[in-house]
């Protein structure tokens, strides 16, 4: 088990956790009003997307990993 594999595994697991948390928080906040809450919702959405991207990178779907 090399370092890169551990990193990928970490990215996948933590990516799932963070993604779920972000979208759950977004779901809970969906009806919140006020300027700052609208911004928070947008940011949570982007955060969730970021977590998904990291997850996909961990699964080697996107991004570049050297052979070996």
């Amino acid at each position: 088990m090399n370092a890169a594999l551990i990193e990928r595994l970490g990215a996948v697991i933590a990516g799932i956790v963070v993604g779920v948390v972000a979208f759950y928080a977004l779901y809970k906040d969906w009806h919140a009003t006020g300027v700052e809450n609208q911004v928070f919702k947008l940011m949570l959405l982007l955060l969730g997307i970021g977590a998904i991207l990291a997850l996909l990178a961990g699964l080697n779907v996107v991004g570049f990993a050297p052979k070996g």
Binding site: E7, A11, V18, L47, A65
Partner: peptide
């Protein structure tokens, strides 16, 4: 120049994204 290796960056990104979630809570 070699392309950037995504493995470590993905893990590091998740660390930062996780901090966003904890800040929210």
């Amino acid at each position: 120049i070699q392309r950037l290796d995504v493995a470590f960056a993905a893990w590091n990104s998740v660390v930062l994204f996780g901090s966003g979630a904890t800040m929210h809570y």
